[in-house]
Nucleic acid binder design. Structure first.
Length: 532
RNA sequence: GCCCCUAUCGUCUAGAGGCCUAGGACACCAGGUUUUCAUCCUGGCGACACGGGUUCGAAUCCCGUUGGGGGUGCCA
């Protein structure tokens, strides 16, 4: 069977990891099934949709390798077709204006009373609903409004579509039938939504409950009582079609067979099923993905500035790492594999294995995975990849003859490319070097250490500019021996003096790269600084 | 309020009635390798939300409670 899925974002800002995760799952499911992956830009919210957002979206998709197969569909360009569809729905009685008297009225979709034949509707049985004593029930062809008493004793108003109340009987306190809904009386109900027929002194509602049901590929069997639903707006008062109509129409036109989208659309599905039916189409298969939540366990909001795909790129994450990580949020291959190539993911991915509950985004795990991907980068590629980050975070390194060697030395220590910000001590002159004051105090206070470090600096000055790490080590050992300092004790003080920091690559290699004279200079500076 | 969904270590997850004394990964802690850091290796800490059922047997099935999320007439 043909498999056609789509990613249908609305371009109203930055691309969010939740959105892109939906795109990834769609893409994986499609590629796994050798289907067609479509991209549709749902830009019908004219107020908030921008070209800039569209550009960013396309950029993110390209970065992550989410390629699509057919022309991009822009929903605004479908507008006329949507309006025609709305007109057709009104003509066939599937939709009606909220205010027939007004020229500009929203159009509502009518949940059909005659729906027992539909594949996604089933009867649950006759139910009885107690009303607030002596309350009135209002009804028309759009729906029923009635009062019930909440557990706390408050009277609350309920409204639902007429279709929710098959064979409705409004009962009085004595059990008498005040009103019975049948073919004849249904025709007599006001067709104008603004007009209502009122039944006074009602005590209970009795009706055959029906529910809408469907099988969700990830959430399983889902159902919702029809009497908890209302007719819904499909055309705004300004004549523009809303999401429900546009979305369903376009899915229909693009012959989408599988809709993979966020959890927040589950409730829409019950309505869309009827829309497909009214438009004469078989509904597609649905799969609703749980949301991704932030560190606080809450859904990401626009305020969570660190959840945009573009930010991950800027922070130095590899697209394949982000892709891999995101694919594991709410899905797993089931065999314990985590680090997987795109090909392996495509091979293993089935939407049915997606989880039903929300997943929390974990920066630490992403970072770990990114480090794994960086580590396996060939040296040459690593050098190429850090380029843009050097320009941003470590300008001194750009063009330096030392760069390649520094990169090789620091490769295994790089978790995100933004880490190159810590490389500047290799390239910065002694004057500009920044020192970790605490470490300086800790490792360069002892007199014996200071004298020996100073002596090592003197030795360095006599050495050739590029001296091997092994040679440097032997010189350090010699100084340690002379002063009776335990082997290796000088490493850390020297590291502070030369790099300003307690962490970094091997100090011998570091001195080798920085050069004898420059290293000696730095040691002297550090000693001066401490002396101040 | 009403409707829908959901609940395994701090986090991501394995688990589809006996293979579970609940497995893996990240994080964390301890030890080892290493001149520090990172890598790598070993070990440790650590969970089936709660209460009822069903069953010879439940993390797995059912009901309830609680927590979380979503929806609830002109956002998508």
């Amino acid at each position: 069977m043909e498999f056609r899925a789509r990613f249908a974002p609305s371009p109203t800002g930055q691309v969010h990891i939740g959105n892109i995760r939906t795109a990834i799952f769609n893409w994986l499911a499609t590629r796994h099934n050798k289907g067609t992956f479509l991209l549709r830009i749902e830009d019908t919210d004219l107020e908030r949709s921008t070209q800039d957002a569209i550009d960013k979206l396309l950029d993110c998709m390209k970065w992550l390798g989410l390629d699509y197969d057919e022309e991009i569909m822009y929903q605004t360009r479908q507008s006329d077709l949507h309006k025609q569809a709305a007109k057709k729905l009104v003509e066939q009685g599937s939709a009606y204006p909220l205010n027939p008297a007004e020229e500009h009225s929203p159009i509502l979709f009518r949940l059909p009373y005659e729906c027992d034949g539909m594949k996604f509707v089933r009867q649950v049985g006759r139910v009885r609903l107690e009303l607030a004593p002596g309350s009135a029930v209002q009804l028309n062809q759009a729906g029923v409004v009635y009062q019930t008493v909440s557990p706390k004793g408050k009277t609350v108003e309920n409204a639902a579509t007429l279709a929710g109340f098959k064979d409705l009987e409004i009962l009085g306190a004595d059990g008498s039938v005040l009103f019975r809904l049948d073919e004849t009386t249904r025709g007599q109900l006001p067709s104008n939504p603004q007009e209502k027929m009122t039944v006074e002194n009602a005590a209970a509602l009795s009706f055959v409950r029906r529910e809408v049901f469907y099988h969700d590929l990830v959430k399983g069997d889902l159902a919702k009582p029809l009497d908890s639903m209302k007719d819904f707006i499909i055309v705004r008062s300004d004549g523009s079609p809303v999401f429900h109509l546009a979305n369903v129409y376009d899915d229909m036109q693009q012959r989408v067979t599988h809709i993979v989208r966020g959890d927040d659309h589950v409730e829409n599905t019950y309505r869309h099923l009827f829309l497909f039916e009214a438009l004469g189409f078989t509904p597609p298969q649905y799969a609703h993905l749980p949301m991704i939540v932030n560190k606080a366990g809450k859904p990401y909001s626009k305020r969570d500035g660190d959840a945009f795909v573009g930010d991950f790129r800027e922070k130095g994450f590899l697209p394949q790492a982000l892709f891999n990580y995101l694919s594991l949020l709410g899905w797993s291959p089931g065999d314990g594999r985590e680090k997987m190539s795109k090909e392996e993911l495509v091979e293993a991915f089935t939407i049915e294995r997606a989880l039903r509950s929300p997943a929390q985004f974990d920066m630490a795990k992403l970072t770990n995975m990114n480090a794994l991907y960086i580590a396996e980068l060939p040296e040459e590629e690593f050098r190429r990849a850090i380029g843009p980050y050097l320009e941003k975070f470590c300008l001194e390194a750009v063009g330096s003859p030392l760069l390649d060697q520094v990169a090789a030395l620091m490769h295994s220590r790089t978790k995100t490319f933004a880490d190159v910000a810590h490389w500047n001590y290799f390239f910065r002159s002694a004057e500009k070097l920044e020192y970790d004051a605490k470490a300086l105090k800790k490792f360069l206070s002892d007199d014996m250490i200071r004298r020996s470090v100073s002596e090592f600096a003197e030795i360095l000055e006599t050495l050739p500019e590029r001296c091997s790490a092994a040679e440097i080590e032997s010189k350090i050992r010699a100084v340690e021996e002379k002063y009776g300092i335990p082997q290796g004790k000088l490493n850390q003080p020297l590291r502070i003096a030369v790099t300003g920091s307690t962490i970094g690559a091997g100090i011998y290699e570091t001195i080798e790269l920085i050069g004898s004279a420059e290293s000696a200079l730095r040691i002297r500076k550090a000693l001066e600084r401490k002396a101040e």
